[in-house]
């Protein structure tokens, strides 16, 4: 158990180190640097040189990488080109806002998906399953910006239940943000739940056909007990790692959904940073998203390990 744990944590660490390397050197390989991109073609040589000196871009790449990575580890994310402020300061509040949105999505979306997935899986191809699966396939196929726009059209324009676009600033109190998160979260839940429930459905169907469920049925175990004690634990365990993997989508989807709703989070900041040609800020956000993904997956992995003893032995 301990070796498996250490192995997972070690792998996550290595992955994070590689992410840092990739994010730094991917831009090294590109023509231009933070200064030439930000200042544009009209920049004079002396302006460029001054900017490069200020950011230390005149130093060799390996040296800059060491300094950049070292700063990052100590929480110094560098200076935002456009805003001329420390990135940590620019990112901080918006990271909180994105976490509120993602947290709300996960808190409602995951239980909802598990429930619907089990319902669909217990009676495959029944009317309930057909409805749930049909909507899920639609949600999985149609792009996020269309689902989000449809949400605004339906709940804001037609029904008038909620404001379509978030108008509060990024420093608003958490409770206000939670209220503003309703429609963006609904959009994310719609798509996230679709992905998870399809997996749970398949998992439930598989377990229902397994030998031990057949056996329990032949022994005369009551249906309720079979579902609660035999099917659910075995069907839901694999879902944990799937939930970890869907985080990759959630984090990417957040970028688009935040832009659709004008939500003041990290994703929209990334879009703004690209428009402002603010390379250091884009780098920092890409890095943060990568780290969040690795850590959530590690968390899901460790949770799965604790709950499922069968995973603890090393397999080749």
């Amino acid at each position: 158990m301990a070796t498996v744990l250490l192995e997972r944590i070690g792998l996550a660490l290595i992955t994070m180190i590689i992410i840092v390397v990739v994010v730094f050197f991917a831009l090294e390989l590109m023509p231009g640097d933070a200064c030439s991109v930000n200042l544009g073609r009209g920049a004079s040589d002396s302006m460029l040189a001054a900017c490069q000196k200020r950011l230390g871009l005149d130093q060799p790449a390996v040296w800059r990488f060491a300094a950049w990575a070292g700063d990052f580890l100590t929480g110094d994310l560098g200076i935002s080109m456009q805003r001329d402020r420390p990135i940590a300061e620019v990112v901080g509040w918006r990271l909180r806002n994105t976490l509120i949105l993602a947290g709300l999505t996960a808190a409602i979306g995951i239980p909802l998906a598990l429930g619907l997935g089990v319902l669909a899986g217990l009676n495959p191809d029944g009317p309930l399953d057909m409805t749930i699966s049909g909507i899920a396939i639609f949600a999985m196929t149609v792009p996020e910006f269309i689902s989000g726009t449809l949400m605004i059209l339906l709940f804001s324009v037609i029904l008038g239940w909620a404001a379509g676009v978030v108008t509060i600033g990024y420093k608003a109190p958490a409770l206000d943000l939670l209220k503003a998160s309703v429609l963006p979260a609904a959009t994310l839940i719609f798509i996230l739940a679709a992905h998870i429930l399809r997996m749970v459905r398949a998992s439930v169907i598989e377990v229902m056909q397994s030998d031990f469920v057949q056996m329990a049925r032949l022994k005369g175990v009551p249906h309720r007990r079979i579902i609660l004690h035999h099917v659910l634990p075995n069907a839901l365990l694999p879902a944990i790692s799937i939930i970890g993997l869907t985080m990759a989508w959630l984090l990417g989807g957040v970028v688009i959904v935040e832009s659709v709703f004008n939500f003041p989070g990290l994703g929209r900041l990334a879009v703004d940073a690209v428009a402002d040609q603010d390379l250091p800020l884009v780098q920092a956000i890409a890095l943060l998203f990568g780290f969040i993904y690795v850590l959530t997956n590690l968390g899901a992995d460790l949770l799965a390990l604790t709950l499922n003893p069968r995973l603890r032995t090393r397999r080749k």
């Binding site: 290595i14 992955t15 994070m16 590689i18 992410i19 990739v22 994010v23 991917a26 831009l27 590109m30 023509p31 231009g32 991109v37 990759a248 989508w249 984090l251 990417g252 970028v255 688009i256 990334a270 879009v271 940073a273 690209v274 040609q277 603010d278 390379l279 884009v282 780098q283 956000i285 890409a286 998203f289 990568g290 993904y293 690795v294 997956n297």
Partner: peptide, 25 residues
């Protein structure tokens, strides 16, 4: 595979935006 894995940990849209920020769209 470790490198591929690490690059896939960055959501596709941010990976793409990283390049677009440098190359223009």
């Amino acid at each position: 595979m470790r490198f591929i894995d690490a690059m896939m940990s960055i959501p596709w849209i941010l990976l793409v935006m990283l390049f677009i920020a440098a190359l223009g769209s």
